Simulated scan of single mutants.
Amino acid sequence: MVSLAEGFGFNTNLLETNILNLAVVLPLVFSLGKDTLTSILDNRREKILSSLRSADDRFKQAQLELDAAKSELALAAEKVKEIQREGQKTMEALRLEETKRYEELHQRFDELKEETIRLEEEKVVKTFRQQLISVAFEKAIEGIRSRMDEKLHRKYIDAKIALMNSSL
């Protein structure tokens, strides 16, 4: 118990305090603390709600960006397929061109080979003819020399001189 001489104060001994004192003090503490606690909790709730809204907005923005990126990826994949198709068409065209050129070169090679063979045959025939003519001339000259005597030789020279005089 608090004596009057001691002044006003709180008695912290729960067994000595009476229920009436507690009934007056506790509602006062609850009403003052309630407003402060309610204000703190409201501020905290607003911050949490604001953070949730912000997170939701960021999530929606990220979702939109993800959808845009997926559509860009799909477009890029289509472009890749188109480029691959064009590349395959180009490769096929190049292979056909290569085959065509190879065939043309092979045909030209065959033509050149045949031309070379023909020219070599003509060269051999020409050489053979020249050798044949040379052998024929040699045999003719040998035949003439073997038959020609001095009288026939003089007759031949006179005929040549006469032929030269008539042409002048």
Rank of each mutant, 00 (worst) to 15 (best):
E6F: 02
G7V: 06
G7Y: 13
G9K: 14
N13V: 03
E16D: 14
N18I: 02
I19F: 02
I19P: 00
L20P: 07
L20I: 01
N21A: 15
L22I: 04
A23P: 00
V24K: 06
V25N: 12
L26T: 11
P27C: 10
P27D: 03
L28I: 03
L32T: 10
G33M: 12
L37M: 07
T38I: 05
I40K: 00
L41M: 10
R44P: 06
I48M: 01
I48H: 05
L49F: 15
L52P: 00
R53I: 04
A55V: 04
D56C: 05
D57Q: 11
D57K: 12
F59S: 05
F59C: 08
Q61N: 14
Q61E: 07
D67I: 09
A68N: 12
K70N: 00
L75N: 01
A76C: 11
E78G: 00
K79P: 07
K79A: 04
E82Y: 08
I83V: 14
I83D: 01
I83W: 06
I83H: 12
R85C: 10
E86A: 12
Q88G: 09
Q88W: 12
T90F: 00
T90V: 02
M91C: 02
E92F: 05
L94T: 03
R95M: 05
R95K: 02
L96T: 06
E98H: 00
E98K: 14
T99R: 11
T99S: 08
T99Q: 09
R101A: 08
R101W: 09
E103S: 07
E104Y: 05
L105G: 05
L105Q: 00
H106Q: 15
Q107G: 08
Q107W: 04
Q107Y: 11
R108E: 09
F109R: 09
D110W: 13
D110G: 06
K113E: 04
E114K: 00
T116N: 12
I117M: 13
I117T: 11
R118I: 01
L119I: 11
E120H: 15
E120D: 04
E121S: 15
E121F: 14
E122L: 07
V124Q: 09
V124F: 14
V125Y: 11
R129T: 12
Q131P: 03
V135S: 04
A136M: 00
A136I: 11
F137R: 15
E138K: 15
K139Q: 13
A140L: 08
I141M: 14
I141C: 07
E142N: 08
E142S: 10
I144R: 06
R147E: 11
M148N: 04
E150R: 14
L152A: 08
H153Q: 07
H153G: 04
K155N: 11
I157P: 03
I157A: 09
D158V: 13
A159Q: 12
A159L: 14
K160C: 09
I161P: 06
I161C: 08
A162N: 10
L163D: 07
M164P: 03
M164K: 10
M164Y: 08
S166H: 08
S166E: 07
S166M: 04
S167H: 08
L168S: 09
